[in-house]
Design a protein around this nucleic acid. Structure first.
Lengths: 140, 140
DNA sequence: CCTTGCTGTAATAATGTATGTTACATCCAA
DNA sequence: TTGGATGTAACATACATTATTACAGCAAGG
């Protein structure tokens, strides 16, 4: 699959904001976050926008604008970040409908759907075990 | 991520070959498999080629050529199929190196590497619980 | 040993997604 | 009112996936 770096970008941004706040800087601009992630500020705004819609960060407009945590780093798991930024399922079904005259073609999609659902749960269970606070601690 | 259908295609092909063999047809051509999956025969040959390199199927050339299981359907898990056909990791790191003058930029990659490794293990544990024989049974 | 049918793979195209970049309307604290 | 940042559209580039055509290579069976 074309693995993407959305989760990486979002976790990096959140962790950096968490560290800045611990150091007393309440609001960070997308430029400041982009400087640590080393990417374009628009990429950061898009990512933080996803996190805002999920209720994980807050944004402030006008003069002195920027981004801030909406919750304590201990209360944000990587699973919540994953859900906020990732839209596609892990595994795709057939591009074109399989041959319904074949018993396998008829039956395989729900069967695979169940298997893929369990695999997804296994992935999510692990992502739910790590918080932004854990990532911050291990970074330092 | 751009979810792909490689696992779906490979499992479908294997399950169909397993059913054909149970019905007494030992060798299937890529055209016959493609007719059930409803895709091009070259796609099937590429997928089965991956499975052959992993030791899951056998190929026969010349007249009467085709594909056959190299193991019993009970002894092939979807995890083995996944490993045979999937090359990319689930999550990508940053496209460009993060800012190494930032504590997060310096430390985050190994931290995320560990988390992503655990998430991958969670996914794989579940895929290892299902065999081609299970898929075949549930299809019928 | 030669025919025949299928495999293995290269080359190409169409499509979709990820990332990066510029531009600009909008917003709001000071 | 204004200045600086957000939100988002528009576009470019790069790459992955799937599909398709073409053809060399292989080997079973006449």
């Amino acid at each position: 699959m074309a693995a993407n770096s959305r989760l990486t970008i979002a976790v990096h941004a959140l962790t950096w904001i968490a560290l800045a706040q611990r150091r007393g800087q309440e609001w960070l601009t997308s430029e400041q976050v982009a400087a640590s992630v080393n990417t374009n500020a628009v990429i950061i705004r898009r990512s933080l926008g996803d996190l805002r819609r999920a209720g994980l960060v807050e944004v402030r407009h006008g003069a002195g604008a920027g981004w801030s945590m909406a919750r304590a780093p201990e209360d944000i798991t990587l699973l919540q970040v994953y859900d906020a930024v990732e839209r596609e399922p892990l595994f795709a079904m057939h591009h074109t409908e399989p041959n319904l005259e074949c018993p396998i073609g008829r039956g395989i999609r729900p069967v695979l759907g169940t298997v893929y659902e369990r695999a997804d749960q296994g992935l999510r269970r692990e992502l739910g075990r790590t918080s932004i606070a854990d990532v911050l601690r291990d970074c330092l």
